[in-house]
Design a protein around this nucleic acid. Structure first.
Lengths: 338, 338
DNA sequence: CGTTGCCTCTATAACGTTATAGAGCCGTCT
DNA sequence: AGACGGCTCTATAACGTTATAGAGGCAACG
């Protein structure tokens, strides 16, 4: 179909190999020949067939970023940074949407797409240590976010327990005593929810506050609707909390909505805090206090580690890296407007 | 590296071609041989090398969806549907982020990635008719959303003028007279903004309302911050509007925030409407009235058309399709809470 | 009994690229 | 003058797959 190396070679009157060397700069080519070849390339509008190149080289230049949901702004923001970072390193990042589906995650780990991809960054939700260990594919794998620990792969995440601590400490510092958690899970998966609950419980204990199971609301997923329903259910029990810690910003935003509908003022009656620092929380009414992970750092680190492994570079430092986070106080916990 | 056809062939004691036929079902294979081959495949864990298959077949099974920003929920929601639709048709959808960058859009039209992709769905922002016509690549192209019209490619979009009409009619119907538009553009690009402004102007005229240029706020982009700044600037002029029509929901949400900070009540003092029906608007305070395009229809149609072209099927119907939309009234134009 | 045709399977040539081995040429050193 | 080395360039064999042409066996037919 398109123009290929042979066409260029014929046009420039040189061999295939010479054209390849001009394109890739692998071997030196004389200045005169180089120019002739370059001219032929420009005239015919040649661009290399990446499939064929891959077949020969064993690498595609493609890396995948697999996330549980594209419509979660946290992942969209992460992805945008990762795409830029990958491009800077000469790789193309393709997005995979696992839709928080176990089969989809397993398929990615070992699936038929493995041939077309040099490496994978995965944010696992439904699979755990065993599944990762059982993986047969040999291309590099970097895990981000939700917890799969103690596996022989790079892993980038924030310290979820510490993040939970920080959130509760802040709520306690502004005088809250009945603090609810929205977004716990029942199953054994979704490690990070459990870690955040652990942070919540530890911080309550450290502050001398009782742990009240009825203030911990479980959800099936971590979207706005989940937070909304969780808080609605919590309020229906009577005896409302004076603060809500959401599993993430989306859950917290759903909580904001449920509180507003029920006539509770935020932050006067109930303070709300989330995790992720998605842009939406900077424009909501009220604006949302949040634990902000360093998304740039997570995305860059994940991409760089992956590329380093792909290229066989010696990677220094531990496999598992915890990236920093900070608390951003906004209106939902009493920061002044504007 | 991995297991290949040859390994399977050796193990099953048949030829390469037979294995290929078992895998692809292209030619009939005897039952006994099929089973032997299948067993070998299962035992060795074979999956075909897509790169090599592509090289031979001329198709990759990959289609690209290129959008201006991953972090715009409208596109994220669209992408999620498109991914599912493509998967159902046996294609893998890879996302490309043009970041609303002209060079990125041009690169996609004709770029080096063209070899690796069977077709492209593009939401153009910075390029127009000429650039699309000048495209040299021959793989199918489907355009969505922002307007590039009169080109020999499929094009799926809503009727932006009619959408503008509908929004203004609604605001007029609830008694608003000083209606602002947030998100106009200065350049010649960004067609759809201009079409929406046209709908705005026509509907004003039809309602017998004057067109006041000072109520049309230009923005550089179409995010929350743009809407926020546009409305801040508008309010600074004094003489505030009694309604705001945002170019999209993100701009409208930025407007909501600016109005709240300035102490204007929504919808009592100022009504707000957007376009896109992103989930965020169902949970904002107040919830956001919006013109809801049929995202499912847009995404499915785009993918189906593209796949049909790739597979050389006869495509019935006109090149350019306008998908339906509907008005969803929420609190920001006076719908009751809950 | 030879021919025909079907059914299964095989050998092999592509697809477009890169890596390897080596060929040819020219100048320089002994 | 002959040998050597360095510099360009070329011929060619892969990479793993699929499509094409055809080989071999067996049953049915004349």
């Amino acid at each position: 179909m398109g123009v290929n190396l042979k066409d260029i070679a014929r046009r420039a009157g040189v061999s295939l190999a010479t054209v390849s060397n001009v394109v890739n700069g692998y071997r030196p080519v004389g200045e005169r020949t180089r120019q002739r070849v370059q001219q032929a390339i420009d005239e015919l509008g040649y661009s290399p067939n990446l499939g064929a190149r891959h077949l020969r080289r064993g690498r595609t230049g493609l890396i995948a970023l697999a996330i549980p949901e594209l419509t979660n702004p946290y992942f969209a923001e992460l992805a945008e940074i990762a795409i830029a970072e990958a491009a800077g390193l000469g790789y193309t990042l393709v997005m995979e949407n696992t839709a928080a589906d176990r089969e989809a995650e397993l398929a990615l780990l070992d699936g038929s797409r493995r041939h077309i991809i040099d490496g994978l960054i995965l944010s696992p939700v439904r699979i755990g240590r065993e599944e990762v260990l059982a993986r047969a594919a040999t291309s590099p794998l970097v895990l981000i976010g939700e917890g799969v620990y103690d596996v022989p792969h790079d892993h980038i995440a924030i310290d979820n327990v510490a993040a939970g601590h920080a959130a509760i400490q802040h709520l306690v510092a502004i005088g809250r005593r009945r603090i609810a958690f929205a977004g716990a899970t029942s199953g054994g998966d979704r490690q990070s929810a459990q870690l955040r609950v652990r942070g919540y419980r530890e911080a309550l204990a450290a502050a001398g506050l009782p742990y009240r199971p009825q203030l911990v609301a479980r959800t099936d997923a971590f979207g706005r609707l989940d937070g909304y329903q969780a808080i609605q259910a919590l309020l229906a029990l009577g005896d409302p909390p004076d603060a809500v810690f959401g599993y993430n910003d989306l859950v917290a935003i759903g909580a904001l909505r449920a509180l507003a509908e029920a006539g509770h003022r935020v932050p006067e009656d109930v303070a709300v805090i989330g995790i992720d620092d998605i842009e939406e929380g900077r424009f909501s009414t009220p604006t949302l206090t949040t634990i902000a992970p360093d998304k740039r750092e997570i995305a860059r680190l994940a991409v760089r580690r992956l590329v380093a492994r792909i290229e066989g570079a010696e990677v220094i430092g531990p496999l598992s890296v915890q990236t920093p986070f900070r608390l951003i106080r906004r209106e939902s916990t009493g920061a002044p407007r504007g």
